[in-house]
């Protein structure tokens, strides 16, 4: 009874929110248009490079493989540390060999998935955090000017989080015996991709 009442209230809440959003559709003032543009621009930025996508999905894959609490700690830490890297890039603090660092992230994370590595939690957080700084810095220096900073940032962080979620969802195949092999194969693909990106970075 309690559950159904709560669900009923929850449904009503979402319905009200949906109605409110629908009401806002006639609002075609240019400010809203610019905000929407900034949001989608931010949303598309993290998926614009295959090296970023591979590494971020690999974080989710590895998190799923490690299970609790790494499953949620890694994706929670990654956007925040990546934003720190982005902050450094935005305020003009240089970071050496960013592209090499990004390629190395795909190599190391792919390798972790292939080997089903289970280092201590602190070590896995440290590995993910170090590489997140490189990814964030690269994005920070590339962010376009002239858009709403917060709207762009929300889109950007949302896309990063969703990529992790994709990785985690794919990583759930780990619970099946054949899935474990498939997951390690995916890790191998990320590793190979990382080697290619590394070769391109030092070329």
């Amino acid at each position: 009874m309690q559950w159904s009442r709560t669900r009923h209230h929850s449904c009503l809440s979402w319905l009200a929110a949906a109605c409110a959003l629908c009401i806002s559709t006639p609002a075609l003032a240019h400010e809203v248009g610019e905000s929407a543009g900034g949001f989608f621009s931010g949303l598309s930025h993290p998926v614009s490079g295959l090296d970023h996508v591979a590494a971020m999905i690999a974080v989710g894959l590895w998190g799923a493989q490690l299970g609790n609490p790494a499953l949620w700690i890694l994706p929670v830490m990654f956007p925040l540390v990546m934003a720190t890297g982005g902050f450094l890039g935005l305020v003009g603090i240089p970071l050496p060999a960013v592209e090499v660092g990004i390629a190395l992230s795909a190599i190391v994370l792919g390798l972790m998935v292939v080997l089903q590595a289970r280092p201590p939690l602190v070590t896995s957080i440290a590995i993910v955090s170090v590489f997140a700084v490189f990814h964030g810095h690269a994005h920070g220096t590339e962010l376009p000017e002239g858009q709403n900073g917060l709207v762009y940032s929300i889109g950007f962080v949302l896309a990063t989080g969703l990529l992790h979620l994709v990785g985690i969802l794919i990583g759930t195949i780990h619970y099946w015996e054949r899935g474990k092999i498939a997951l390690r194969t995916l890790g191998g693909l990320v590793l190979v991709g990382g080697l290619y990106f590394f070769w391109r970075a030092i070329e």
Binding site: V76, M77, P79, L80, M82, A83, T84, G86, F87, L88, G89, L90, V91, G92, G140, L143, E145, G149, L150, Y152, S153, I154, F156, V157, L158, T160, G161
Partner: peptide, 18 residues
């Protein structure tokens, strides 16, 4: 909370750059 903090940090960098 993590996403809010990350958005805030990026916005801070964005504004400081501006």
């Amino acid at each position: 909370a993590s996403w809010i903090a990350a958005s805030g940090l990026l916005m801070l960098g964005w504004e400081l750059r501006g």
